[in-house]
Amino acid sequence: MLIGCYTDESMEDIILVRVYGKKTELFVDRENEVRNFRILHSHSCGPELYCTFQNGICYEFVKGTVLDKWLVREPTIYRLVAMEMARIHSIKPENGHPVKPVLWKKLSTYLSLINASMIDSRVSEWFQREVPSFDIIASEIEALKKQLSEIKSPAVLCHNDLLCKNIIYNKAKGFVKFIDYEYSGCNYQAYDIGNHFNEFAGVSDVNYKLYPSQELQRDWLATYLETYKQCNSMELTVTDLEVNKLYVQVCKYALWQKRHSQNGLTPAVPGSSYAVAEDSQKQGLYQLCQVPVMQW
């Protein structure tokens, strides 16, 4: 639940209060969320966190327009998104030590939650009818881990859930900011970008005809690399070879995510919702906090 609090009708000084959903702590590391909230704010990449309480947080409201599937493909805006992501990806760990990508740990947690929820007959019946067996899913994830780890995409601080509604565009000041850090953490650079590209197709009403064109992707990636190099004190010139390399890496992660979304069980874990859908084309007949099904 998200509540906006203000003292007058002008709504100039809005404070947001978010109350966590029941049992979301089974999958979301709330301490990590708060830590990354503060890190991003300290680097001018996120709003200020005012306070925390047992089942929620209170933080600054970011003024601007929430992106949609049309705004996100406008050149002026998507280049700002690429630049902001590059800045976040350039934030170094606080202790200076390398950290492991969160992806595989989240997948392991996800599988454990699925296994635990099989005691509910409704969940068990749904999985038997709609998705491969638990053993097949587990073995496929191991194969994916081996293949994707060979891509050698660097581990960076990622948002991990950059759908359109998590991007705020301030036209007057010419910037974008990302919000909602529940799934933020160290992850593969190409994963975060590929996840964002998949979000061009929508969430509840997915249409992959809206997936960004190769031309848009390459322009996005070139803009990203320019800012990423600048933030990391690297040679500023971006070559076609560098764009091609990142493009291939991003495509591999994006295709993996897309494939599993079409199977009805998407292991794009950082951007999950806590619901089980009876039919991937419908809203779902019921919800269970124990079983997260991915949003695309």
Rank of each mutant, 00 (worst) to 15 (best):
E25C: 13
K22F: 13
E48R: 14
P292H: 10
N187A: 08
Q54F: 12
I168E: 06
A254W: 10
G202T: 10
D135F: 04
E242F: 04
V19E: 06
N166W: 01
K22I: 14
Q287Y: 11
C231A: 08
I136M: 10
K145D: 04
F175H: 11
H43M: 11
H260P: 02
A190P: 04
F178M: 14
C186G: 02
K165E: 03
I114D: 09
W220V: 02
P47V: 12
E94D: 06
F27R: 06
N170G: 03
S139W: 05
Y50K: 08
T76G: 02
I168W: 03
H89L: 11
G64W: 05
S133C: 05
S108Y: 10
E94V: 09
T24Q: 13
S280D: 08
E9L: 08
H41L: 07
T239H: 01
N115P: 00
K63W: 04
S204P: 01
Q147E: 14
Q147L: 14
Q249C: 10
S153A: 03
Y50R: 07
R35Q: 07
N36Y: 12
L80A: 02
Y6I: 03
P132M: 12
R73A: 07
S233H: 10
W104C: 10
E31H: 13
S44N: 15
W296A: 08
L16Q: 06
P267Y: 15
I15T: 13
Y208L: 06
A116V: 06
Q290I: 08
Q249V: 07
L16T: 08
R259E: 09
V269M: 15
V243W: 01
N170T: 04
G194D: 10
E235T: 07
V81R: 06
Q147M: 12
C289L: 10
N263P: 00
M294A: 12
C58Y: 01
